[in-house]
């Protein structure tokens, strides 16, 4: 079976497989057409030589291990926030607010409801866009995977687009759809499309050939093959593509709000900058970063549960 190189080439980020529970996000790997897949074993969680020397850690009490990781994260958070505080006091720049003032501003924003109303506006194009391109993109990717002709027409376009800075097209969007919701939805769609389509495509193409042979040996027809084998086997990568697509969607909506017309969070950022209320500005920025991270982490957690039972512990 003729396969395109997919997730296998470098286990790092080419595949959505994470390792050691880290959240891995990546643009879809370069798809090289017409080459056989090389299957690299992902050595997830492999200990470094140093760790092997010091001895393999026995899985005695899971809690102890979790606590240690938690401890270091806490330390790291404190260090970074502490550095932020100092940097603000020093000050790096008159405009750079301290950590504490940013947090206070954030609290205010939440209290006054400004933040929630902003998100209500921002999340609309995101949700609509992800929904549209999620369905369309997955269908397109599956079609590309199943039909050579369709692949012939569409794959080169996506290969080029996957490395392209789609942000350059944002100014164009205004011409097409003005500055309303539709424009922002289009921005989300543009940013998320390549990664969703290509991951679905990869998922279909990288289906385990033994499973297909098995289905044929039990006299399954093509429809059964597709419905019972190919799509379930590909669903892991498809979901990963959707996860990455949501991450890209966030990028798209923020870009749209900063470049096309300020609404929602983009509006908050621009407004507070304009009136030099830097703590509030930084607070808004922090909030969107945190929000995006949390959303994508939830999706990753969901993905682990649905598709990767061996990694549920992490």
């Amino acid at each position: 079976m003729h396969r395109a190189t997919g997730a296998a080439r470098a286990p790092c980020l080419s595949s959505p497989e994470g390792f050691q529970g880290a959240l891995i996000f990546c643009d879809s790997a370069s798809i090289r057409v017409g080459e056989p897949t090389s299957n690299l074993k992902l050595r997830a969680g492999q200990l470094s030589a140093k760790q092997r020397e010091k001895g393999v850690r026995m899985p005695i009490v899971l809690r102890r291990y979790v606590n240690q990781r938690f401890l270091w994260r806490l330390v790291s958070l404190c260090l970074v926030f502490g550095a932020w505080e100092l940097a603000g006091r020093k000050p790096i720049s008159i405009a750079f607010p301290t950590f504490s003032s940013t947090m206070l501003a954030l609290a205010d924003l939440i209290k006054e409801g400004t933040l929630s109303s902003a998100y209500a506006v921002t999340l609309q194009p995101l949700a609509i866009g992800v929904l549209i391109i999620g369905i369309l993109g997955v269908v397109c990717g599956i079609a590309m995977g199943l039909s050579r002709t369709f692949e012939w027409f569409t794959l080169p376009v996506f290969i080029i687009v996957q490395s392209a800075p789609m942000a350059a097209l944002i100014p164009l969007i205004t011409f097409l759809y003005g500055i309303g919701l539709a424009a922002k939805v289009l921005a989300v769609v543009l940013m998320a499309a390549p990664v969703i389509v290509l991951n679905s495509y990869k998922g279909i193409r990288n289906v385990n050939p033994s499973l297909i042979q098995m289905s044929r040996s039990f006299l399954g027809n093509r429809q059964q093959e597709i419905a019972k084998i190919i799509i379930p086997d590909a669903s892991g990568l498809i979901f990963a593509g959707l996860r990455l697509g949501v991450a890209s969607g966030f990028i798209g909506v923020v870009l749209a709000e900063l470049l096309i017309t300020p609404t929602g969070i983009g509006d908050l950022i621009t407004y507070y900058r304009a009136i030099a209320e830097y703590p509030s500005m930084f607070a808004s920025i922090t909030s969107i970063i945190v929000f995006a991270t949390v959303t994508v982490s939830l999706l990753q957690w969901l993905e682990n549960i649905l598709f990767r039972p061996e990694r549920r512990g992490s």
């Binding site: 909506v253 969070i265 500005m281 969107i288 970063i289 991270t293």
Partner: peptide, 11 residues
Amino acid sequence: VSAPLTAIVPA
């Protein structure tokens, strides 16, 4: 690695 870094650019 996955955050909308564009939001940081105004800062």
